[in-house]
Amino acid sequence: MKNISEKPATTKKEDRKTSIMQTALKLFSTEGFYTTTMPAIAKTLGMSVGNFYNYFSSKDQLAKELMLYISTVLGDKLREINMTDVSVKEKVTMIVHMYFSIARERPELIEYFLRVFLSNREIFTKECTGMVCVSGFVTELMLFFDEGVQSGELKDQDFFSALGLFMGYLGGMVFLNGEEVLTKPLNEYETAIAENIYNALRKQ
């Protein structure tokens, strides 16, 4: 008889897929996208190459799913913040904190976004055009800005000028941190950065 605590096969496959993605993310963001091969990822995981292809049929497909995965992880966190009943100013602080915490605890997520997704657009043009792979995260940012303007706290402006200011700033700081240019740990910049972002976005 089947043990009821046993996970169904689909969940097991999903778990395996997630662990493959985590390993792939680490390899891509440290070794580079082009230099990391599918057999190399399979080898790190102790899997046969044939079995590996059961999970991802091509490197491009893996690359796309990784971006979707990252966008979902960040989007879920941002959604929690959006649903919190605090001022927009406090939400800015929470978002900065969330982003830097992820950069510290799971740097491969941000590194992949900055060093693979943004730097190798040719891989993503076909299947990850526009918002397709980042919609989880970008939608939550839209909701955050929309609420900010509706509540009267933020200035009404073009979405991308606000997005660039917010995410460009955070991405830039994580990049500098990765390059070991910063003189202090990333979290010590949180308060000043949140204040700068809020001041730049708020209704004057």
Binding site: T139, D146, D156
Partner: peptide, 29 residues
């Protein structure tokens, strides 16, 4: 009426989150 280019009102009975997800993806093509 938009807030940071995001329409303030979305179709009746559809959450803004769902609408923006769908619209963002559709707009990508």
């Amino acid at each position: 009426k938009t807030n940071m280019s995001i329409p303030q009102d979305v179709p009746v009975g559809i959450s803004k989150r769902s609408y923006l997800t769908m619209a963002g993806i559709a707009k990508s093509f």
